[in-house]
């Protein structure tokens, strides 16, 4: 009797277990559908997509705007002018300080050179090297070139571009002078060194990072005859300028002074290779 009951119970349980499993799947699906419909999950996900789009775009835009507000855009013109004047004053002060320091160095050099002949010869060497690298004022025979933009009426000129003196013109002149054996060149007081850059920055030209503008005054020390003829050669630079009305004037001088480079020279990455 007991065994029978147990077996029946087991059978019942088996059948109970089996049937509901199949039902459960369908029921679950229906339940899920009901759940989605009751809670309006589809609507909310669609709304959520809209919210996603808004937040996404909003945050991205905030990122960009905060990134692109650089110093120049954020500041007004007046503030920029203030900054410029402050920087100019600072520059002048630093220049004065630099001059003082250089004087002190000079003093040490002269004191030292009085002491012994070895140091004397060394200081001579230093002077020579400084003159070669453009850190000393130099004087001697040479030519002075003045260059100015054309006065030609715009209708007469081939193009307004060609009436102006460009950075390329200055580079061409410097190259020409160097090839004719110029020993020192300066443009509007800016000494041309081995590291000098002459480039166009908007409406002005930068030489050694300093703005220069027309009229240009180019001084070159060297054999005046050779220097002048290198520019005056037929089909050369002067001919090219006269075609466009750019005013160029070359004078030979017995003695001109080319002033020194007043910036800082030095290596930060380069090292001397010991032989």
């Amino acid at each position: 009797m007991l065994n029978d009951k147990k077996i029946r119970k087991k059978i019942k349980e088996m059948t109970k277990d089996k049937k509901p499993i199949k039902l459960n799947k369908i029921e679950k699906k229906e339940k899920a559908k009901d759940f989605i419909q009751k809670n309006g999950i589809l609507q909310y996900t669609l709304l959520g997509l809209a919210v996603f789009a808004l937040v996404f775009v909003f945050v991205a835009q905030l990122n960009t705007v905060s990134n692109t507000k650089t110093i120049v855009q954020g500041k007004r013109e007046a503030e920029l002018i203030d900054d410029l004047t402050a920087l100019k004053i600072e520059y002048e002060e630093l220049k004065k300080e630099n001059k003082k320091n250089l004087e002190i160095v000079e003093e040490y050099k002269t004191n030292a050179s009085n002491n012994s002949s070895l140091i004397n010869s060394m200081s001579e060497e230093i002077n020579k090297m400084a003159a070669l690298s453009g850190l000393k004022d130099i004087k001697g025979e040479g030519i002075v070139i003045t260059l100015d933009d054309s006065d030609m009426a715009i209708s007469e000129a081939i193009s307004t571009e060609s009436m102006l003196v460009h950075d390329t013109d200055l580079r061409a002149i410097v190259t020409e002078l160097n090839s004719a054996g110029a020993e020192a060149i300066s443009i509007n007081g800016q000494r041309i060194l081995s590291s000098t850059a002459i480039r166009c920055v908007g409406p002005v030209i930068q030489v050694n990072g300093v703005k220069v503008a027309a009229p240009f005054n180019i001084k070159a020390i060297g054999n005046a005859k050779y220097l002048e003829s290198s520019l005056n050669i037929r089909g050369g630079i002067v001919d090219g300028f006269e075609l466009y009305g750019v005013k160029i004037n070359i004078t030979r001088e017995k003695s001109i002074t080319v002033n020194k480079y007043d910036g800082k020279l030095g290596f930060s990455k380069a090292k001397i290779v010991e032989e």
Partner: peptide, 8 residues
């Protein structure tokens, strides 16, 4: 909706 906002 908060979840989507977080994703955004």
């Amino acid at each position: 909706i908060l979840m989507f906002a977080g994703f955004g």
